[in-house]
Design a binder for these strands. Structure first.
Lengths: 226, 226
DNA sequence: TTCGTCATGTAATGGGTTACATGATTAC
DNA sequence: GTAATCATGTAACCCATTACATGACGAA
């Protein structure tokens, strides 16, 4: 009992906002949508779904169908979960919180995965919050390292160094993202004060610059399990 | 009850192998020795110490002193923990395990922090294991991305991309480390079969190439807490 | 005298996993 | 027919955190 969570709950609401799904499929989506291999087991997912239903944020729909392109009637009776109006409202409230909680590792990744569903304002606050959180971290690490450098052996030191560089790298990433958001905002601003110009939906939506993305072997099964 | 752990237990044994300590100090060392800010609270540390004592791996020494340079007798009665012979043996056994467990994130970081206390053979096996573990991960991520690319929005995709690059970066790091180890091994080998030459202790110890390390503000307090 | 930090602990709670139980459907 | 995968769940456990309780010591 009391199987609530925070991030799992949040992610489930977010995924169901896009479209109704049943548990089994949700679990797979959780593993791909959220950052690097954040997997959840059924042992936490199903109970979580129950409590979300109990809170009135989801409703169960016993009917089959569900999948796009599901042609045949047959299949098995699944429980399809759909977001209620309350659920949607709740999710949007969670998504718009820009407090310190949103800067922590797991939390931040989850927020980021649903950035497309919130405003640029919120995005920028969260990105900047995350960045300063990491910079605090770096300060502490540097200070701690300066104090203990002599006492630590080579491998510990190397671990420390690699860890710091990872954090520094994330800060650079955040800088790029913040730049992107700022650029999008300025563009939007100049478009609206220079009277209505061309352009379609460059307003609140994502404006990430496309990148090279490796796409080698188009194959393999969908699992994330052992 | 039953507060055993795995990584905490392991790290405590490892730190106490270097020198006896009391709980409070141990907690601080845990936060700096292990990777990027892996903190443990007293709520897990103290119970862990108790079970380690119960297993005969540690003994409590009630005496004060302890700290190097602790001049005055005064102070308060601390419980200093010292590794027993059994404890040392147990730790070394744990340290020499090269099974798949040692390739997981947290586990690997902990192992790495104590690499200086094990053989080059073990180090190489663990590094290579970790690397292939990450490469499997990359395979799955690439495959999953290839399948779902269209369905995912920009931010989710960006999160995925950044995650993958982080993993790729760690693989490069491992490659460097493995190279270092290999170089050290070869050097040792050629030294021993070309009859005994100069050289002192280049045998089993760490052979990491020294790097540039930032050391800006030499200051700040020791905590890791909020 | 009051505040920070040293120092040790416990109880309640949180948030997850593993292993188990069950069964239908599909692919070979 | 038998293996894999789809599909839903529960009970037992694991490993940690938070908040609480207690108290000594040094410095302002």
């Amino acid at each position: 009992m009391s199987r609530r969570s925070g991030i799992l709950e949040f992610a489930v609401l977010g995924l169901l906002r896009e479209s109704p799904m049943h548990g089994y499929e949700l679990r797979k989506r959780l593993n791909t949508s959220l950052g690097v291999f954040r997997a959840f087991s059924y042992g936490s997912l199903y109970p979580c779904l129950k409590t979300l239903v109990a809170n009135g944020w989801l409703i169960e729909e016993s009917g089959a169908a569900g999948e796009a392109l599901a042609p045949l009637a047959g299949r098995r009776a699944k429980i399809v979960y759909r977001l209620t109006a309350d659920g949607k409202e709740h999710f949007e409230e969670l998504l718009s919180q820009t407090g310190p909680d949103a800067y922590e590792d797991e939390h931040f990744a989850a927020r980021f995965a649903f950035f497309g569903q919130t405003s640029r304002d919120v995005r920028m606050r969260v990105l900047e919050g995350r960045r300063s959180r990491l910079e605090e971290r770096l300060e502490k690490m540097r200070a701690s390292l300066a104090r203990t450098r002599e006492r630590l052996d080579d491998y510990t030191l190397e671990l420390q160094r690699h860890g710091m560089e990872s954090v520094e790298r994330e800060v650079r990433w955040l800088n790029e993202l913040i730049e992107s958001e700022r650029a999008g905002r300025d563009q939007q601003r100049s478009a609206s004060d220079g009277s209505a110009q061309q352009n379609s939906t460059s307003g609140e939506s994502g404006v990430l610059p496309r990148r090279r993305g490796s796409t080698p072997p188009p194959d393999a099964s969908d699992d994330t399990s052992k």
